[in-house]
Design a protein around this nucleic acid. Structure first.
Lengths: 149, 149
DNA sequence: GAGTTTTTTTGGCATTACCCCAAATTAGTC
DNA sequence: GACTAATTTGGGGTAATGCCAAAAAAACTC
């Protein structure tokens, strides 16, 4: 029910932008409409449509044309990993003199290129912290929130 | 004579591949030939030529056609930053359960997206370590070597 | 429930970062 | 001065990302 069921993935399979879409859809919960995604990510609806169908083809989403998308089981597990990765890395950076906002912004730029393996090792090494520094990803608002390891 | 003279740069101005070229040229010292770069980076010489002229246009290199390239003062300062960034980040990751090689490889994938500001903060926070874990970047060999902060 | 409005999708096109190949050009050597 | 090896030019190609205009579907309105 979580990423343990998909031990195949490396964490590097999605492009930065596709990861943004997945994280946003997880955050919104349930079925999400094209327009909503477009306005959050600030892109043309046609861009959103195209990206969503690629994510659906790759098995992360169920896409009912004209209706919206929701995460597949795999998509949910993957999106949860993406969120965990963001939070672990952000937390890490706040231990080195970056503010929550700085860490969040910094990590958002590179997180897509950090492997699941590395994240797991860092997570272990930090003792599976339950408290992250950043609840929202790749957009703007950052707040304190509990999380899982 | 080091990056202190170019306080304008953010560390995000070069694409990943361009950063590879710059780091390689710094490492090779002096004038470097197209063929040498091509074989190190495993790309067609024509690709190298094109990239070099872009880096020259941007002010990082002096390019004498058919002769080779060498770093401008700015290019040298920038390349030194690139190396320092790689080493600081690699060192950081080895503190979280990654081996030298793993850290090196991991960092190579995302370092281009970490700002100079963040690197400086991390560097401060770590007390300006003189010993890095990785001397070579974005290629393969990693070895222990002292370095500057 | 038919017409209008809004949302979504399609198709076409553009940019940036990479990359290769073949042909032309230049440098270095005998 | 001619040959060979290195380099550059010109022409293309892909993947990721994005926009616009037009078509299609769904929603709303009266």
């Amino acid at each position: 029910m979580n990423e343990q069921n998909y031990p195949e993935f490396t964490g590097l399979e999605l492009s930065p932008r596709k990861a943004d879409y997945l994280k946003l859809i997880l955050e919104k919960k349930g079925t999400v409409k094209t327009t909503e995604i477009s306005s959050c990510l600030q892109v043309d609806p046609s861009t959103t449509t195209k990206t969503l169908s690629e994510l659906a083809t790759a098995g992360y989403l169920n896409h009912v044309p004209y209706r919206g998308v929701d995460l597949t089981e795999m998509g949910k597990a993957y999106a949860e990993f993406l969120v965990r990765r963001h939070r672990i890395l952000s937390l890490l950076f706040t231990h080195y003199g970056l503010s929550t906002e700085e860490a969040c912004a910094e990590v958002s730029r590179f997180e897509t290129f950090v492997s699941r393996d590395a994240v797991n090792k860092i997570c272990n090494s930090m003792g599976h912290p339950m408290i992250g520094v950043c609840g929202e990803i790749s957009h703007e608002k950052c707040f304190h929130e509990g999380h899982y390891h």
